[in-house]
Design a protein around this nucleic acid. Structure first.
Lengths: 136, 136
DNA sequence: ATATTAAATGCAACTGAGTTGCAAATATAT
DNA sequence: ATATATTTGCAACTCAGTTGCATTTAATAT
């Protein structure tokens, strides 16, 4: 079991249901981000789409995953590496490949500029281009 | 007439209809970005929502305005200052106030980092926080 | 000016992601 | 084992955005 593997531990409020386990397995088996549309399609034999939405909500509240929107406004989720239920410290950019559509979290610090007269609290950064697989 | 004022000139494909004129007026009278939802609501006495969507599409193709999504995935438009119909050179961030919801284009160059193995073509940056009006 | 033609518009119906209410099922604590 | 709170399925819904088609209007040619 790898360090980045999501376990059932330390999830105070969330119950260890069959559906939650299935969803966590999907995240453990993927190293890139997952769109909700994709998750619903791939899990439709196992659970209702409403259940997918609600479990993802809970996992995000617990700091297990974080969500963001792609360039079309669709919601994606990815494993959190440095988030807790109290604070989502992920201020990393997301990268979407224009060829294959895959999205990955980049381990890069985004330097949010200081702007006079404006208080900046958070930043959503979506980079677009071509991923390593599609380049070669 | 100010330099940033959008005129009917140099729009090859677009016809100078009453509806296009009304929409351009709204953009000329606003210094911040405008959500499509807001535009449809405010122009519903004058034109159909389908017309609003289609005119905005055409204005973007002409390089008159540029579009982007807010944190909820809703579409917004703003006047282009440096775009042409051939190239949208706007790589500036957008700033949305968490208090009043207003979005403005920031005249800041976003330094997109070079990443090994990845080709980056564009970047969408949405900063969130509190705007000058809501701070004071 | 008038006719012609291509573009633009209105309308109604549709799409699809995401949400909500409620009853039934299930996990956890006692 | 029982009670209780959480979770799930289902159906219906919301709402931004799209599409097809008939009608209107702007630009161009006559």
């Amino acid at each position: 079991m790898q360090a980045s593997c999501i376990k059932f531990v330390a999830m105070g409020i969330i119950r260890k249901t069959k559906s939650v386990g299935l969803l966590l397995n999907v995240f453990n088996q993927s190293k890139s981000a997952l769109s909700v549309v994709h998750l619903i399609e791939n899990l439709k034999a196992s659970m209702n789409k409403t259940t997918v939405y609600r479990i993802l909500d809970r996992l995000e509240q617990e700091g297990v995953v974080h969500s963001f929107l792609d360039k079309d406004g669709l919601t994606w989720y990815a494993k959190c590496t440095e988030c807790t239920s109290h604070e989502h410290s992920d201020v990393h950019p997301h990268f979407q490949c224009n060829d294959c559509g895959t999205i990955e979290c980049l381990s890069i610090d985004i330097s949010i500029p200081t702007i006079s007269d404006r208080q900046i609290d958070s930043a959503d950064v979506l980079l677009q281009g071509t991923c390593p697989s599609c380049l070669s």
